[in-house]
Design a protein around this nucleic acid. Structure first.
Length: 297
DNA sequence: ACTTCTCTATAATTTACTTCA
DNA sequence: ACTGAAGTAAATTATAGAGAA
């Protein structure tokens, strides 16, 4: 797979160096793929009035910018595939029982020929056939996902009607979409941590070398005599940072005069920035996808 | 051109868990 | 406290489609 676009419009954008911004999903703006041309018939902003649930789920994804459009790869790949080919999967399990209650049943009945034909056609068919969503359907779903990563029943019904799909299909699509988003974020996090690890390994190696050099310096009496007194380091008890006493500011230059390379980290009053991952700096429970499931409204 | 095989993306299912009435 | 419904995440399965041989 590698760096290949995964169809989510997500690409790795990592700040591998210290003090770099958090790993962030670099997503294509919606306008760049012509999504603005697809306007739902309904007023989605009206339909998708912010609910408690949506607020909750948005906050649980706060680490990622999920509300961005995907690239067109997905849709190009599906080019020309009509949703009319879709068939319904075998209806089994508690979920289907659940879907057949209340307003959804009504909505499913109200759905157009795509759904009803499929249901008739698949009746008694044990194998589950897989629907390929049309380009338009995918675009509208993505568009909606940009605004809300979860749907309340009303939204689900409206969207299903708009897309000529069953509410269950819309629901499944959103579930899978959230899962894909999370997977992508995990990959980004993983890559970021890998780079952090590499940086720390490199720094460790550098510091080991530095210790070795300093030891060699100490064992060489002639050089040692001409050196200024060693730097006095004091540790601040509150912040646990190292402070430098005023008498030692020329250490670096004197060492340099002895023709021994000193890494920049040997300069005591120069604080090294700590490589902090945005997630690691955040309590686990507050990290995206680690939060408890969103509470229902 | 055609078949077959492999691989990827993703729709759909199942299971487990949480929340709430 | 218990229970069932509902919603979701996570894991898994199954299938469509593309590309290589």
């Amino acid at each position: 797979m590698g760096e290949k676009d995964d169809g989510l419009g997500l690409s790795l954008s990592l700040g591998c160096a210290q003090n770099q911004p958090s790993p962030k999903l670099n997503l294509m703006p919606l306008s760049s793929i012509g999504m603005q041309n697809l306007q739902p018939k309904n007023t989605w902003s009206e339909l998708f009035r912010p609910s408690d649930r949506n607020l909750d789920t948005r906050s649980y994804l706060r680490g990622i910018d999920v509300n961005r459009a995907p690239t067109t790869v997905d849709h190009e790949e599906e080019g020309g595939v009509s949703s009319s080919n879709s068939t319904i999967s075998s209806l089994s399990g508690k979920r289907n029982e659940r879907d057949n209650v209340g307003d959804e049943t009504e909505a499913e009945r109200a759905s157009s020929s795509q759904v009803s034909d499929d249901e008739n056609g698949a009746a008694g068919d044990a194998s589950r056939k897989k629907l390929r969503l049309s380009k338009e359907q995918s675009l509208l779903l993505e568009e909606t996902f940009k605004e809300h990563i979860t749907l309340n029943p009303k939204q689900k019904l409206a969207l299903a009607k708009e897309l000529n799909l069953r509410p269950r299909q819309v629901e499944v699509w959103f579930q899978n979409r959230r899962a894909r988003t999370k997977l992508k974020q995990t990959e980004v996090d993983c890559e970021y941590l890998k780079r952090c690890c590499e940086n720390l390994t490199e720094e460790n190696r550098r510091l080991q070398k530095e210790v070795q050099d300093l030891r060699a310096l100490k064992l060489s009496p002639q050089l040692y005599m001409h050196m200024n007194p060693p730097t006095t380091l004091t540790m601040c008890p509150s912040c646990e940072r190292v402070a430098v006493s005023s008498s030692s500011s020329t250490t670096t230059s004197s060492v340099a005069a002895a023709s021994i390379p000193v890494p920049t980290s040997a300069v005591p009053n120069q604080q090294r920035p700590l490589p902090i991952s945005p997630w690691t700096a955040m309590p686990i429970g507050l990290r995206p996808f680690n939060s408890a499931p969103a509470s229902r409204s």
